[in-house]
Design a protein around this nucleic acid. Sequence first.
DNA 1: AATGAATGAGCCTTCATTCAT
DNA 2: GATGAATGAAGGCTCATTCAT
Lengths: 184, 184, 184, 184
Amino acid sequence: MEDIRKLSGASMGSIYHHFSNKEMLARALYLEGRSSLHTAISASLTRHSLHEGIEAIVHAYLDWFEQHADLGQYVMQAGDSEYLSAYVKVLRQKTRTTLPTETLSEQLLRWLAPYISDGSVVRLPSSLYLPLIIGPSREFIRIWLRTRHPEEIQVARDPLAKAAWLVIAAPSSQTSMLNAETDR
Amino acid sequence: MEDIRKLSGASMGSIYHHFSNKEMLARALYLEGRSSLHTAISASLTRHSLHEGIEAIVHAYLDWFEQHADLGQYVMQAGDSEYLSAYVKVLRQKTRTTLPTETLSEQLLRWLAPYISDGSVVRLPSSLYLPLIIGPSREFIRIWLRTRHPEEIQVARDPLAKAAWLVIAAPSSQTSMLNAETDR
Amino acid sequence: MEDIRKLSGASMGSIYHHFSNKEMLARALYLEGRSSLHTAISASLTRHSLHEGIEAIVHAYLDWFEQHADLGQYVMQAGDSEYLSAYVKVLRQKTRTTLPTETLSEQLLRWLAPYISDGSVVRLPSSLYLPLIIGPSREFIRIWLRTRHPEEIQVARDPLAKAAWLVIAAPSSQTSMLNAETDR
Amino acid sequence: MEDIRKLSGASMGSIYHHFSNKEMLARALYLEGRSSLHTAISASLTRHSLHEGIEAIVHAYLDWFEQHADLGQYVMQAGDSEYLSAYVKVLRQKTRTTLPTETLSEQLLRWLAPYISDGSVVRLPSSLYLPLIIGPSREFIRIWLRTRHPEEIQVARDPLAKAAWLVIAAPSSQTSMLNAETDR
DNA sequence: AATGAATGAGCCTTCATTCAT
DNA sequence: GATGAATGAAGGCTCATTCAT
């Protein structure tokens, strides 16, 4: 709190005038960060068709963290923390107005649904799409955040994007892709 | 500390007799957990050849978390935390006796090296193998730890294992696989 | 202060425009309450002769608290509090304009004086008249304020009034009273 | 809290090792003080018969405050405070082990009961005995605590004791008393 | 080696008060 | 005269750590 006060330049009382709690302040920061990330990813989704869309998601994910490393680090760590999700549970019981928590997965599923139906994307347990598409990138970023060498992220962009597609694409689309992409 | 004292049944003084401070205790717990996980994975690696080995790693990873959910949750969260890695850096400058930190990735690379050389595994930036193989499972477990429904993990085991192989295998090995596995 | 602001509907700044600080506001409320109580009692005094006057005081005291329970509670508690009396001492040294503090006792003594002289009221240390006349009622009210059952106060009115007279009246007046009041 | 720490010579943590709260510490002090006062009064009760007993109560009450002015001031003020009695209500719902709150009145009534039955003490609403007997003394002490002149208390002792008896005694016992006590 | 009461720096938070608008 | 966001000193309390036994 003292650090935040110093950095923000505001007074103790002023901070507590705007945020009822340390927890609420942490939550506000987390939600803002997550929202920023989700917005970046949403933009990629809506602008592209299947194959390019998947790769765009991964690119957007990696790029966002490269550009918001500090906030990203906080969001990543806070996303795991128990107390936050516990708190969110309470909120959900009280107010329905609050933003939903795991939108990213739902958003992704909504976008994928037609492609799953028409067979261009493999049918899997719905809880696996996000891990398979974003999981490798998340793990990569988690490690990258400790060093933050910009070049590393550039080298990883395309392999991670291609892997996401490879894992999600139905065998048929994949075969046609194998023919098309001889660079692999 | 008070919670640990209550759970352990030991006295405050006794705990401080064994661990110099809270950080060291946290570190000991973290290292023990991580070591347990690594041992489980190592066992899978050494017992199998390439394709089965990759899938065995994923299975071992998922199974270990299913069996050690609490410890797993702690290890996963502690693995991200800055203070630990910062502390580890200090330790590395002082003592070289302490166990290395990112063994899992190194261990995996050592095991994969021959297969990369002979072309049965795609050549990628070395920092990507762990994210690609374990990343989806880690992300899946991260979410699973909040609900801990046993059935979910069972449904996810095979898709995650197969995805890990798909992403790592060289296109040639992959095509042969496509012929073999008609169930996909 | 925040509570007062909410209840009064005024703004923070407005309150501080009218009262220099919290203590002054508390004092104003206390003085207003006490003044209201004293007025009620004064009215009883001036309207009656000795015996009826004493009983009227007690009745007025009890009735006032019944009708102003919240304010009464505040006045009673504030009357005890050290900081107020300490503050009043400071004020007395500075300004002589402020209202005197223990008026009730002085007022009572002025009214009793002739009756003490003519022997119809016992001669006692002057600091005892108020405790003897009002003390039981005050103690009764102090307890009553916790429950505030209206019936209790009605049952207590007459016994307390008669006791006040009994304690104050000279033995001679008392004997004549004993003859008159055969209901006792 | 800081003041208490300084006065007690103990450390902050040590105080909180013994009392869970500031409120609990305040409560402990209050209960100890009240208990000391009640013990002093109980002793007077048991050692005497009716008339002397009543006067002994008053004497004990006054003497205790004279000897424990600071503690007495605290007990008197705390006894009024709302938060304490509110807290006691909560406690009563939880634990029945805690000491009772208004023992003094109950204790007094138990002692008076036989005398009320045999007609030597007036029959009144039970909630009036304590106010009538102790009320004047309490009010006197409340004022006295601001000056604490020892002589004042000595002058008040007998009149207050006699008034307590006068108010409680049945008319018959009183008449006989009037004959006996020619000094009045 | 074990105990657990004691320590005290530092945490989060409150709240009477101020002041620019 | 009114407003209410901003202020910051001070409060209650926690908790990692120590130390006498």
